[in-house]
Nucleic acid binder design. Structure first.
Lengths: 168, 168
DNA sequence: GAGAGTGACTTGAACGTTCAACTCAAGCTA
DNA sequence: TAGCTTGAGTTGAACGTTCAAGTCACTCTC
């Protein structure tokens, strides 16, 4: 409901142009992520969260990260991550090692050799899909504007610096 | 994995600028929809799919739609819709009526009075959240550019015209 | 007018995510 | 040293989505 069929008390409504842009954005949210997920699921048997977990690990020194850091970097709850790591461990892409690293209970997830190989095998197809659905569809000005808007929105949504993603 | 830690065979890689924009977009996909969902869940006990279903019904003539049309408009599978309608029916926001309308087996979902009232109660908060997280965060030029990019991407992703969403 | 065919739903099992406990390993405090 | 406290991780139940059957109500064909 973003249009005026239902009568609207007090809240500042959207202008037609804003409505149009908002709807396009919402439609994009409902369309693009599922399309990206589908490619990963089909070609790799992974969902995008699992993929991002593997990717984050591959970029980490020693290909290992403490779970709580990994959770922040992959933008998921610790619980979600824990379940995901369990699945990835069962598949052999990752393993867990408790690292008694000073304070409290700390567990590291480490990308296995098999996991790294898997990722190397998957990545090109994923990038190809990113190109096909996004990068190559937009003019470079459009892509730049999209990136700019996305960064602005992220900065507003996440009050503190997105420390997990320095490259943003 | 969009960066070059893992060696990359044959696939055309992304330029640093493209990578930067792509990552921002992916981060946005992981951040904004969950935030929007959370507001709906918290304030209305609905997920965004259910909300879009109610909204689509409220805009329809007679506040009713055949399920297969509604599925297209709300961008979900028929199965997903059927489950959702079952939940919404249990809550009393919607009811089902089989409309023996010529061909085969057709079921209409209709927004009840209670459902309409619910939507009227929910909508302002949702629009407020849309403003808070998106509309008011971007300059009008940024929003326009975002909308433009989104429409371009949608047009490429959905080959045929998005008949359910004439307003895009 | 019986039987095949075809869209339009529905259903149930499997799976991933969330939420609310629960456990575990330290550091404090007395 | 015993007993809190706290941060980190795990676990299981509940719930929504997907996928693969089903079922149902018509039309078409002989």
């Amino acid at each position: 409901m973003t249009s005026g069929t239902v009568s609207e008390p007090a809240a500042p409504w959207l202008t037609p142009a804003q409505q149009r842009d908002w709807r396009a954005l919402v439609a994009l949210f409902m369309t693009l992520p599922p399309a990206l997920d589908a490619q990963l699921k089909r070609d790799a048997g992974l969902n995008s969260f699992e993929y991002h977990v593997l990717a984050a690990l591959s970029d980490a020194p020693d290909r290992a990260l403490v779970l709580s850091e990994l959770a922040v970097m992959s933008q998921g709850s610790l619980s979600r991550l824990s379940h995901a790591i369990t699945r990835l461990e069962r598949s052999g892409w990752v393993d867990r090692r408790s690292c008694a690293d000073r304070t409290g209970r700390r567990t590291e997830a480490r990308l296995t050799e098999a996991g790294l190989a898997k990722l190397e095998q998957i990545a090109p197809g994923h990038v190809r899909e990113a190109r096909r659905l996004v990068i190559d569809v937009l003019s470079s000005a459009q892509l730049a504007a999209l990136g700019d808007a996305a960064r602005t929105l992220l900065a507003a949504a996440v009050p503190d610096a997105p420390r997990g993603c320095p490259q943003l």
